[in-house]
């Protein structure tokens, strides 16, 4: 979805942002490093880092940005649990875009890949 939204807007981005690369997050995405750090500290359940990243995102983007980022992060804390608990495969394993992203991000190393026969 990140790649598709970047392509749609003609923005050059670095997918390594998804893997925690701060320089990558800064490329083409407004508040990228702050958003990345906020998402990461929530998912890692690091209370100190979360307090710090929350304050940084609030200072840089304001309360509305923080709230919407919190909503998205909370939503995707749920999505992985739905996908893995039910064991669903990816929808189109052979689509070129998906294959390229999975290869770039080494997603096939994740345990849930077995649900797609990998």
């Amino acid at each position: 979805m990140l790649r598709v939204s970047a392509q749609t807007t003609g923005t050059e981005i670095d997918l390594n942002a998804v893997l925690g690369d701060a320089a990558g997050a800064a490329k083409g995405i407004a508040l990228g490093p702050e958003l990345m750090n906020f998402a990461e500290s929530l998912a890692r359940r690091d209370a100190d880092a979360l307090a710090h990243s929350r304050a940084a995102l609030l200072a840089a983007g304001g309360p509305a940005v923080l709230v919407d980022a919190a909503g998205v992060a909370a939503n995707f804390q749920r999505m992985v649990r739905i996908a893995d608990s039910i064991g669903i495969p990816v929808d189109d394993l052979n689509a070129e875009t998906g294959r390229a992203v999975r290869a770039a991000l080494r997603l096939s190393e994740f345990p849930g890949a077995r649900n797609s026969g990998l």
Binding site: A30, L31, M36
Partner: peptide, 10 residues
């Protein structure tokens, strides 16, 4: 893009 960065990192 900002939403998907958050979603992707989580």
């Amino acid at each position: 893009m900002q939403m998907e960065l958050v979603a992707g990192r989580v």
